[in-house]
Computed example of a mutant assay.
Amino acid sequence: ADAVLLKTAATFDLSVWEFWSGVVCGGRLVIAASQGHRDPGYLVELMAREWVTTLHVVPSMLDALLVAGLPESVWRVLAIGEALPAALAQRVVREYPRTELFN
Rank of each mutant, 00 (worst) to 15 (best):
S21T: 14
G41A: 11
A64P: 03
H56V: 05
G41P: 07
P85H: 04
E95A: 14
A10M: 13
A1G: 14
G69N: 07
V30D: 01
G81F: 01
W75E: 03
A10V: 11
A3K: 12
W20P: 02
Y96R: 15
H56F: 10
G27D: 10
L84Q: 00
T54Y: 03
A87K: 01
D39A: 04
L29E: 05
L29K: 02
V23L: 15
D13K: 07
R98I: 00
R49Y: 04
G22H: 06
S60F: 08
A9H: 13
S73P: 05
Y96D: 02
Q90S: 09
P71L: 07
T53W: 00
A48M: 04
A33H: 12
F19T: 13
A83N: 09
L65V: 06
L101T: 01
A86V: 01
H37A: 14
R94E: 15
P59R: 12
A86D: 13
A79L: 11
L66G: 13
P59N: 13
T54F: 03
R94C: 10
G36H: 09
G81W: 05
T8Q: 10
R38T: 11
L62G: 10
L46E: 07
L5I: 09
P71A: 10
V93C: 09
L88C: 08
P59K: 12
L29V: 14
V57S: 01
A68H: 06
A86S: 10
M47F: 00
H37C: 05
A68W: 03
T11L: 15
L43P: 01
N103M: 12
L55N: 02
F102M: 15
L70F: 01
V23A: 11
A86G: 00
P71G: 08
V24C: 04
A64H: 08
T53Q: 01
Q35I: 02
V93N: 07
L101I: 07
Y96A: 10
L6S: 12
V77Y: 00
G81A: 09
P97K: 12
D13W: 04
D2M: 04
E50C: 13
W51I: 00
A83G: 07
E72T: 05
R38A: 13
V24T: 09
C25S: 08
T11G: 08
A87G: 08
L78I: 08
V67D: 15
A3L: 10
D2V: 03
G81D: 00
S15G: 02
R98T: 13
V67K: 14
A68L: 09
H37S: 14
L6H: 10
A83V: 11
A3Y: 05
V57H: 04
Y42E: 15
T53F: 00
E50W: 02
M47D: 01
W51M: 15
L84P: 04
P71E: 01
L46R: 09
I80F: 03
L65M: 14
F12W: 14
T54S: 06
P85E: 06
V44E: 01
G27N: 10
I31G: 13
R98L: 15
E95G: 03
L6P: 02
G41H: 08
H56R: 04
L14R: 04
P40K: 11
T54R: 05
A64K: 15
Y42G: 00
L70V: 13
T53C: 00
W75G: 10
G69L: 03
A9N: 11
A3M: 07
V93D: 12
A83C: 05
E82A: 14
H37V: 10
R38K: 15
T54W: 02
R76W: 04
V74A: 00
